[in-house]
C-alpha cells in the first residue's frame, strides 16, 4: 500500500514538473522552407559596392556602376578578381565553387549569382 502511495506521489511530482516545463515559450519566427533568400537586388548591390570600396586596389571615391566589369572598368587583373570574389563570399557567408567563381567578371554577374543562391545572407 505504502509503495502505491509513494508511486502516486512521485507521479504527481513529475506531473508538476512537466506542467512547469510546458509553459509556452515566445514564438520564434523562422524562415519558412519555401521562402526565398529574402535579399533584394538593391541590398545585394549596395553590399557588393561596399565590399568593392573596401578593397585596397579600388579607389573608394570612384563612382561604381552596376554593370562595371572587374577587368575593364575597375582595372583589376585575374588574381584581384579572385580576391574580390572571395571578399564577396565572406560578405554573404557562402562558398562559390571554382567554376562559377571564374564566371563572375563584373558587378552585375556577382549580384545575379548572390540573388540565385538561397544560402546567401
Amino acid at each position: 500500500m505504502s509503495l502505491f502511495r509513494f508511486a502516486a506521489r512521485t507521479s504527481a511530482l513529475s506531473r508538476a514538473a512537466w506542467s512547469v516545463r510546458s509553459v509556452p515559450r515566445a514564438f520564434v519566427p523562422r524562415a519558412g522552407y519555401a521562402s526565398s533568400s529574402g535579399l533584394s537586388k538593391d541590398s545585394i548591390q549596395t553590399r557588393i559596392f561596399d565590399v568593392l570600396k573596401g578593397y585596397e586596389k579600388i579607389d573608394p571615391t570612384k563612382v561604381l556602376t552596376p554593370t562595371a566589369s572587374f577587368a575593364k572598368d575597375l582595372g583589376l587583373d585575374s588574381l584581384d578578381a579572385v580576391e574580390v570574389v572571395m571578399a564577396v563570399e565572406e560578405e554573404f557567408s557562402i562558398e562559390i565553387p571554382d567554376a562559377e567563381a571564374d564566371a563572375i567578371q563584373s558587378v552585375d554577374q556577382a549580384v545575379d549569382y548572390i540573388a540565385k543562391t538561397p544560402e546567401a545572407h
Binding site: 585575374s78 588574381l79 579572385v82 580576391e83 570574389v85 572571395m86 571554382d98 567563381a101 571564374d102
Partner: peptide
C-alpha cells in the same frame, strides 16, 4: 592553365 592557377589561388587564400 590560368583556370588551374586561379582555383589554386582561391583554395590557398581560403585555407
Amino acid at each position: 592553365t590560368s583556370q588551374a592557377i586561379k582555383s589554386l589561388y582561391h583554395n590557398m587564400l581560403r585555407s
